[in-house]
């Protein structure tokens, strides 16, 4: 059995996603899907209870912070609306051909979390939507509030695996809103849920509180999997030293990846990104 398991690991690891073993696994996942949903429903109340207690502890501080954020957001919403209308008018005048933009060119596919990774330290989850719902590999995944939580790494017919932003394999090209600062968002110190904005030039201006969104670069041989403008998080600390090539920027993600109940997979309406 140990030998058989080793053979399975080897084949599963080396074989392409269209291979026989992966196809069999996909078929198995489809068969197991109803059971997964059932088990998740049984486990959900216990997870909710833990989340409720955790939420109560942090509620007071969070309430004060959210009130401050709301005041700022209300001002910005008015400014953004004006800029949006101006932008739309200018695009019409110049007949500007834009790449797929978020959210207009993407269809949301809501999906419940149906399973968590077997090894607790893996920051990956399984969602109950797959090829049948139009989900494809590398599709961006958001939480219910529209904040980025990860991307699809594997798809079967009725489920898909999501690598969360805090997974060691995650990397998202990102930029600061209203500032000339670009970089790569990667997981920060493990277990903290924080992110790092890496490769930010020292000449870039960036401050605590700045919001980070996906850069969505469509240029070059490796265009980004993410459309431009999906909110990722807020800068909590910026530092630099003489010896480092880049700034050290810490980012607190907007999405709470530890208490996800359901997600939204963004499926492009224009075919290939």
């Amino acid at each position: 059995m140990v030998l058989l398991a080793l053979v399975l690991v080897t084949i599963s690891f080396r074989e392409s996603e269209s291979g026989g073993l992966h196809s069999a696994q996909d078929a198995g996942a489809t068969v197991l899907h109803p059971f997964q949903v059932g088990i998740e429903r049984v486990v959900r109340p216990f997870r909710d209870l833990a989340g409720y207690v955790d939420g109560l502890i942090a509620a007071k501080a969070e309430n004060a912070r959210l009130r401050r954020d709301l005041a700022v957001a209300q001002q910005e919403a008015i400014q953004n609306r004006t800029a949006f209308e101006q932008n739309r008018a200018l695009r019409a005048i110049t007949k500007y051909h834009a790449p797929p933009s978020y959210p207009d060119d993407y269809a949301p596919v809501p999906a419940a979390i149906s399973a968590y990774s077997a090894a607790q330290f893996e920051q990956q989850v399984v969602v109950a939507a797959g090829k049948n719902a139009g989900v494809r590999r590398d599709d961006p995944v958001l939480d219910q509030s529209g904040y980025l939580v990860g991307r699809i790494t594997r798809v079967s017919s009725r489920s898909a695996r999501v690598a969360l932003l805090t997974d060691e394999s995650s990397a998202v090209s990102a930029q600061a809103l209203r500032r000339d600062a670009r970089g790569l968002v990667r997981p920060g110190r493990a277990g903290t849920g924080a992110l790092l904005l890496d490769y930010v030039r020292k000449s870039s201006e960036l401050r605590t509180g700045d919001r980070i969104v996906t850069a969505g670069s469509q240029r070059g041989q490796l265009p980004s999997d993410y459309p431009r403008g999906i909110p990722i998080g807020r800068v909590t600390d910026v530092s630099q030293s003489d010896t480092d090539l880049y700034k050290t920027v810490q980012v607190e993600p907007f999405a709470d990846v530890d208490s996800l109940e359901s997600v939204i997979v963004l499926v492009t309406r224009r075919g290939k990104r």
Binding site: L4, L8, V9, Q25, G28, L32, A115, S117, A118, V126
Partner: peptide
Amino acid sequence: TATLGTLGVSSL
């Protein structure tokens, strides 16, 4: 199979 992980890892 259910978590779409590398097949055989948990078995091993």
